[in-house]
Structure formats: structure tokens, C-alpha cells
Design a protein around this nucleic acid. Structure first.
Lengths: 280, 280
DNA sequence: CACTATTTGTCCGTATGTATG
DNA sequence: TCATACATACGGACAAATAGT
């Protein structure tokens, strides 16, 4: 049995990072001393120092010789947020405010999972495209799309780099009638980490979406991976019906609510979130 | 400059894991040979073997001496899914089908991020509770809740382990009028990995929820972390209004759609997902 | 039934990096 | 900073199992 565990310094690094993000260690106040941290975590002092080096290099703490190490509050611009209930609505805007890089394109015989999801015939092929979406030149989402071959043929490869896919589908006279979305999380592998500008092993927000036409046949299968520091889903709910009729209705971002979430943890809200960001 | 990078074996491990999950390496077919993989990734054969050991120990591959290593297609039970648009609705059911462990409880002066989100007075205190939610004895979510002190006093510590928090709030005559939810992803630190039964550095699905009363004051701040292999958000959308009126409406899980997503990647759907799982 | 090519399994010695005191 | 222990990674060599000729 081999280990494969992360180095101890990383444990400590993640621990302190969480504590700082959660506010357990307040901004402008000092962290425990290095020897203290070493004992608390059952590691040596050099190991603690490595973790602190990492935190310092990311600008999360500041080390003052003789005084201690301090939490640097502030900064950390909020991720752009996509309204999950409206995910499909504002694709056009999205296409305008962001650019797309087409990483790969081709026709394949899809893996069984895709066949099942799209309800394809046994050996029907799909058009598979891998795209990278950027905002301000910064990549934030990695998209793997599968579309049944006959549908995919209705637009060109170049269209993909300029126009949102659902837009293209609609132009072809297809009707997106129903969609199913699942949101989860994964670790970045080399294939995805590299184009997204992350290290291998970073956390990714993932969304799988399947779009169906009125007949119930699948039109599009999308596997999207997002950098959580640059993109997150938001859903605002409003209570409908008073009293005991427990019912909530998604509402269209009622107003700019102070709603933080820095890579899964709290952080001071700062930059106003994108007005109507959405899908992909 | 110290390194802090994951071991090389982990790179390879994550790469192969992604390729398998994405269907690039088909089930029942063979992976490239160890020497081949070693050269492709620029690592030694032992390193490849370590990665394969890991995959084998997780049951993703099968190694046959002399023959090769093969992808073990099959199960990997789907995560329970929570309908994100209904997240608050079925708390009661949820409270019945799952158990809760109260990990920590106390009154604190909250970090600035919480103060801001809940719109508290400068030095108002909050009741902070950390809970672990289990299904079938298996932990799947780690919940950190902050509630303004005066509100928190209206129920007992024991109530927390048995009753969903929003239920308690309603009993106290409070009205949850509006809620804002943000979904992202993070890495598990030691504090969260341990109770959730994960290794440090695993991917977590995160949700931050703030609930407001009609006056706009914050009632509850919840920071939830989910094991993506046991829990994921699902949102089904239905097209409303025909033609050019692009509009989508969340719909209450219209029927059991073949919608996979194994920890962020595709995988054969198998076990029926939980009927109406939801929040927390 | 060999015979061979390929592949996993096992062991070596050594170099580098990580962690400790 | 230094010396020590241990894990990681490397390249190589060899045995044993498998599949095809």
C-alpha cells in the first residue's frame, strides 16, 4: 500500500488558509507563533514555515520578524457569479462579454454515459468540442460539449468560437424544451488545470447539463468546469405564499445583496458582481 | 522558494482518473502499458505504478499480470441530489431521513464577513454551531451556522441535533422572507476533511446561504460543505413561452432523467437518486 | 506444443526532496 | 544551519504470467 498523501506542509497550509478565510484568525491580528503551530499540528517548525511561506507568497499573511505573522485582510476580488436559475437565458450577453478559445473539435463515437444521457442510437456519433471561456483574458471555464452528429453539422467550426452553442442550435431550428443540470465539485487534473491556469489538484466547480428537445431526444450534453475563484453560481429565493405554505420561488437577483463566498469560504465583499452573468 | 507541489504520482493518478471518468478510456478495454504511460507523462515506471496502485485500490481499474490493466466499468453509486431551487422546502423530510451530529456550539463575536452578510450591529454576537449531517451513517455535509444571538436563544442546543434550523426559526415566530445562495467549490482542509471522512485536499462542493426576514435583517448564515460523491445539486428547467420569448422556469424534477455526474465527471447512471433530497 | 513479444510484478542502487531534532 | 531518517522518484534488470503466432 503506497501512500499518495499530500506533503505535511500542505496539510498545515490548507488548515491555516481555511482558518483565515473563515475568520477564525481575524484580519490584522496575529497568528500563533511558529513553535506553537508546530506543536498544535504535531509537525516540526520547518514544516510550519513552509506552509507560512506559501501563505505569504499568496499575500494572505504578512510576516514581521520579531513581531509575529499577521493576517492581511482585504482584496481577493469576488468571482463573477452566474445565476443558476437563469443559466440559459443570457447566453448572448455572455457571448459578448467573454471570449472563447476552441481547444479541440471533432466527431467521435461517444462514451456510454453520453449515449445514455442524450438517448442516442447505439452507434450514433457526436460532435465533441472543447472550449475555454475567458473574461478579461483570464480563463474561467473549461467546456466539453457533445452534440449529436446530424445537429452538429448544421454550423461551422468557426461559429463555435464566436457564438454560444444554444444560439447556434436555435438558429438551426431546434427547440430546447427541457434541460437538466447537476452541480458538483472535482479536482483539476493536468488536462483541465493547464488551460485554466491552475495547479493540478485545485478545486473545480463542475456542472453537467443535458438539453432536450420537445420529443425528449437529447440536443446537447455539456460538461463544464469552473475556477471557483472566478465563477460561482448564485440563486436568490423569495418566499411565496404566507404562513404555513412553505414555498420558495427563484427570483431574478432582487438587489445587490452582500453575499460573499471566496472560493467556498467567506470573504469581504468588494467588487460588484457581474450584473447578469450566466451559463457556461 | 519551496515547492509544495503534489507528488508526481498524483498528477498521473488524477490524469488517468479523469480520462477514465470521461470515457476516454473505455470500460473493459485496456489502458496503455506501464512503460507507455511512463514515457507519455515523462515519469518513471514506478511512478506510474504508484498511480495505478491508487486507482486499483479504489476499484477503478483491474490489473492482470501479463495481460495489461483494464478499466472496470460499473457502478460507483450516484450521489444523492438536492434540488437547488427547492433547497429550503423539504427540510423536514430531510430531517427525518438523515441524522445530525452537533460538533460544536457556542456564542462568538462573528468575523466581519458574517457581520456584513447578516447586517448585524457592530458588536452583536452570534450563535455559532457546527453540524455534521449523515445519511445511512455516512457523513455528507459539514455545516457552519451563524445566527444572531437573540434569535439563537429561542431554542436549545439539543434541538439543533434533532430539528432543521429553519424549522426552529419558524417556531420562534420568525419569518424567512428571502434567501441568497452561492455555490462554489473548495479543497478540504484537516478541519473539514476529518469529520467528512475524506483525505485532506479532496474536492468539496460549497454553498453559502443567507436568510433574511421581511425587514431585511439577516436571520441565518450558513456555510455548507458537501462531499461531491455523496451530494450534488440538481436543477431541472422547463421552457416557458414559445418562439422567441427565451425564458426558462425551474421545474420540480419532472421525471427521473438519466442525468449522471460522478464527482464532476460523467459516469454510468445506475442507482436511482433520492426522491426529494434537499438542503443542508 | 513450443516460441515470442508484451505486460505486470519484484528487486536493486542511487539521487533528490521532505521532515525531524 | 547541520546531520539524520525516510519517502519519493529514477533507471535498470529480471522473473512470471499472458496472448498470439
Amino acid at each position: 500500500m503506497t501512500n499518495l498523501e499530500p506533503p505535511k506542509a500542505r496539510r498545515v497550509y490548507l488548515l491555516l488558509r481555511d482558518r483565515i478565510a473563515s475568520g477564525e484568525y481575524r484580519a490584522r491580528s496575529s497568528l500563533p507563533s511558529e513553535p506553537a503551530l508546530a506543536e498544535q499540528n504535531g509537525v516540526s517548525r520547518v514544516t510550519v514555515r513552509r506552509a507560512l511561506d506559501q501563505l505569504a507568497s499568496e499575500g494572505l499573511i504578512e510576516r514581521r520578524p520579531g513581531a509575529g505573522t499577521f493576517v492581511k485582510g482585504g482584496q481577493a476580488s469576488l468571482p463573477m457569479t452566474g445565476d443558476i436559475s437563469n443559466v440559459l437565458a443570457h447566453l448572448v450577453e455572455m457571448g459578448q462579454t467573454t471570449e472563447v478559445k476552441l481547444l479541440s473539435f471533432g466527431y467521435i463515437v461517444p462514451p456510454p454515459a453520453i449515449v445514455e444521457a442524450l438517448r442516442l442510437d447505439p452507434d450514433e456519433r457526436t460532435q465533441r468540442s472543447v472550449r475555454l471561456r475567458l473574461i478579461d483574458g483570464q480563463p474561467f471555464s473549461y467546456l466539453v460539449t457533445n452534440v449529436p452528429e446530424r445537429i452538429g453539422l448544421s454550423y461551422s467550426e468557426a461559429d463555435l468560437a464566436s457564438t454560444p452553442l444554444l444560439e447556434l442550435l436555435e438558429r438551426s431550428g431546434l427547440v430546447a424544451e427541457r434541460a437538466s443540470q447537476t452541480v458538483g465539485a472535482t479536482l483539476a487534473g493536468p488536462d483541465t488545470a493547464e488551460p485554466l491556469g491552475l495547479e493540478v489538484g485545485a478545486a473545480l466547480l463542475s456542472m453537467t447539463r443535458v438539453v432536450y428537445d420537445p420529443s425528449g431526444k437529447g440536443i446537447e450534453h455539456l460538461q463544464a468546469l469552473y475556477r471557483p475563484d472566478r465563477y460561482s453560481f448564485q440563486l436568490d429565493l423569495q418566499r411565496t405564499g404566507a404562513g404555513d405554505a412553505r414555498s420558495w420561488k427563484p427570483v431574478d437577483r432582487p438587489r445587490k445583496v452582500a453575499a460573499p463566498a471566496r472560493s467556498g469560504r467567506r470573504a469581504p465583499a468588494r467588487r460588484p458582481a457581474m450584473e447578469k452573468g450566466s451559463a457556461e
